[in-house]
Design a protein around this nucleic acid. Structure first.
Lengths: 338, 338
DNA sequence: AAAACTTACTTAATCGATTTCGATACTTGG
DNA sequence: CCAAGTATCGAAATCGATTAAGTAAGTTTT
């Protein structure tokens, strides 16, 4: 391994001078700076991020956290898109990305400890159970963090615009003539609450009455539970004409349940998803859904986190809401009369 | 930040003793070892991975490389499954995972330099253009690496069993009565060659003649190009009865092309995918495909890499082939007579 | 021409942990 | 009772890089 010591010997200057030359310090003559850079290149010198991090207390490494429990794993497209865009933006800004998890090998660590252990400059909390004490500890610690789809105290967060998403979807089906709209929702999280409130509010504003049995609990990303909820809705004497699913993937559970009852989409039942993952657009019929701006969310998360890391003094926490986009699809039928 | 110095002061012993006590060295008395561990816990001590890495020359950090160019990005389910299982196994073994990329911020680095810069103990090359000189440099360097779906010289690699996969798929459609089988293949990579040769070999063994125009080039994970290939196949005077697609996602391109010609699956055309991603199993009709053992591949990759890192002396490179599993689906029709 | 700056380096401490080589005290064997 | 062995601990070097402080020239000011 080539170190600054090797360069200093080859150039006949001190290690301090080499370091300063390579970092563009002002008190190095043009001549020596050039000589140092050239021999550095000739010898194939690479800075050692570890040594630098130890000395300057900054690792240029940010953690990313996907908690394994909530099923919001990396392989869901929404999250893998976020991961990809966080990674791209962080790298653009000179930061590497390391996964933060509970328990590394034999050591039992919580998230906070893991982040400290790796001396991460900051952490993006991408998917997590926000009631988990370990998550809370990290998110309220002195380590800069950005959370996605949740705000701790009033710390920095990137929020998908669930209110607007629901509004647009409700308006869309309303204009197609639907009045009997059922809503299958995911676990009781802040996201769910926002969507549910927005759903109710928008319906109310449009003068639609939603009977309580039209609101069904299920779980995110779990086709089975949405299938069950669908079955209950179909058992009602007064069936809805349109069903909102918690997310695109969950709709697939509803799909097979509707299949079982020989109910065709959208002729006999209209459906709406959420997320706008690529899968939704290759289904036939194409799913009506709301695409969350995952790519931009990841980018903003990385950008804000690095801003906070690099200028902590003039930093104010902020919450950014990223709008999505309605994808019309073909799964909502035009009702001739209501 | 609590360091071993703090502990040493609190305990009235030297830093050396603290370090040894925490690492279970033999020349520390039971008493002091216990006292040190207790005050370490009391003070909330966390080892500093950076400092340790600098001293011992091991970072307990392994790199993972997904090259962005080939479209084999993280958000493809095959790769995100691999990522997830590499991550899980590495963490189980006490290693963290960092993404390795070209160009970090302003610095221009190739993959090898990036891995050195972060002093990765090893790198999993999960998805890459194996003709890229930067990839070759890394994969043939002194850094332990494991490649997926490609073998450099005879270094360690994890291979999906493409030969067996093709064999099984061909046999499957053969037994359904198909004799006119077309094969749309991806870019000319070693994987493609294996599949192509295996396809040809199996057909020959079964006495099936495949006319050259039944073999169409396209690109992996690119529905558009497979759509075009499909169009060409449909234009033939002697159409095939069954089409093999390069992967599940590409099949979707074929799907819309078949739609356009009002050809229904499997009644008028049978199709077969490859990969067995979850999407393939929620399509209707369910896709006949071959699931690659992504989860096991990732796990083995991490396991072998760590083995090589931890006992480089008694290490022999090896290639592991991971079998997959045929998913029958519903997209291959039973031909009454052939 | 003496005082006051500049410029261009070097010295040495430091980050947090590990590890080699002693050093000391105590135990055991002969 | 002395030599040898054992158990326990500490001093100091080290990993590679950064940086405050100091130094020795040369340059400018008055």
């Amino acid at each position: 391994m080539v170190t600054i010591t090797d360069i200093s010997k080859a150039c006949g200057v001190s290690r301090a001078t080499v370091s300063k030359a390579l970092n563009g310090a002002p008190d190095v003559s043009q001549d020596t700076a050039k000589r140092v850079r050239e021999t550095a290149k000739k010898l194939g010198y690479l800075p050692n991020a570890t040594a630098r991090a130890l000395k300057v207390g900054r690792s240029y490494n940010i953690g990313i956290l996907f908690s394994d429990t909530t099923g919001g794993g990396i392989s869901h497209e929404y999250f893998s898109q976020i991961l990809e865009s966080v990674k791209a933006e962080a790298e653009r800004l000179g930061y590497d990305i390391t996964f933060i998890s509970k328990d590394l090998g034999a050591m039992s660590m919580d998230y906070y400890e893991h982040a400290k252990y790796r001396s991460c400059d900051g952490v993006v909390i991408a998917s997590a159970d926000f009631t988990d004490p370990a998550i809370i500890r990290l998110a309220t610690s002195e380590i800069p963090t950005v959370t996605l789809d949740y705000t701790f105290d009033s710390r920095t967060s990137i929020l998908s615009d669930n209110v607007k998403g629901m509004e647009e979807l409700v308006h869309f089906v309303y204009e197609k003539g639907h009045r009997k709209i059922a809503f299958i929702h995911g676990e009781n999280t802040s996201v769910t609450q926002k969507r549910l409130v927005s759903f109710r509010k928008t319906c109310a504003a449009l003068g639609i009455e939603i009977p309580p049995e039209y609101i069904c609990p299920a779980r995110y990303h779990d086709p089975k539970s949405s299938g069950l909820a669908t079955r209950e809705l179909l058992a009602l004497s007064d069936r809805p004409t349109c069903i909102f699913y918690p997310d695109d993937l969950s709709f697939l559970g509803g799909l097979s349940e509707l299949d079982r009852h020989d109910i065709s989409i959208p002729e006999e039942m209209s459906v709406v998803g959420y997320d706008g993952i690529p899968l939704s657009q290759v289904l036939r019929p194409k799913l009506t859904t709301y695409r969350q701006g995952a790519e931009r969310m990841g980018r903003e998360a990385a950008r804000l986190l690095v801003e906070e890391i690099e200028s902590p003094d003039l930093w104010l926490p902020q919450q950014i809401t990223v709008e999505g986009e309605l994808l019309p699809g073909k799964t909502v039928r035009d009702l001739p009369d209501n």
